[in-house]
């Protein structure tokens, strides 16, 4: 189980490769990897966005993400889970977040990956400030979650 906050661009595929390399012999017990990568768009709410700054609450961010990973590990049968999140100055096309879950079976990997991602958007203390042609503005809300959460899934 690993959580990483990074102030520099990261490569999600390299993160997955590096994390999996640590599995060793346990690799043969893992039949499924589900991953989600969220990236920065160059538009939001109908406006072009040229860059943004992602602020966070050091200490609380790590704590919330670690708790989230631990809750997922208790709820689903997971071999491992990795969460990586960018902070600081971000440009369109940059990757912002990676959530990856490994399991013996795909159902556990799929469901936990989505649930962790949705919960992250509602509980991890990050805030986006966008730059548009009209100036800077705080993003005030995330798009609502659809399904997949910790409580309703069988």
């Amino acid at each position: 189980m690993a959580v990483r906050i990074c102030a520099e661009p990261f490569d999600p595929l390299e993160e997955l490769r590096r994390h999996q390399a640590g599995f060793g012999a346990g690799r043969a017990k893992v039949g499924a990897l589900a991953s989600f990568v969220g990236s920065m768009r160059d538009f939001n709410e109908g406006d072009a966005v040229s860059s943004m700054v992602l602020e966070h609450y050091p200490g609380m961010t790590d704590r919330q993400l670690e708790e989230l990973a631990a809750r997922a590990a208790a709820r689903w049968q997971l071999a491992d889970i990795l969460i990586v999140h960018r902070v600081g100055e971000i440009l369109p096309g940059d990757d912002i977040v990676l959530v990856a879950t490994w399991s013996a079976h795909r159902a556990h990997a799929f469901e936990s990956c989505r649930a962790v991602m949705e919960e992250l958007k509602h509980s991890a203390p990050f805030w986006k400030k966008e730059r548009t042609a009209a100036g800077e503005r705080w993003v005030t809300r995330n798009t609502p979650a659809n399904s997949a959460d910790f409580e309703t899934r069988g």
Partner: peptide, 8 residues
């Protein structure tokens, strides 16, 4: 104290 979170 902080506003609603907008990460991810």
């Amino acid at each position: 104290f902080f506003p609603p979170v907008t990460g991810g």
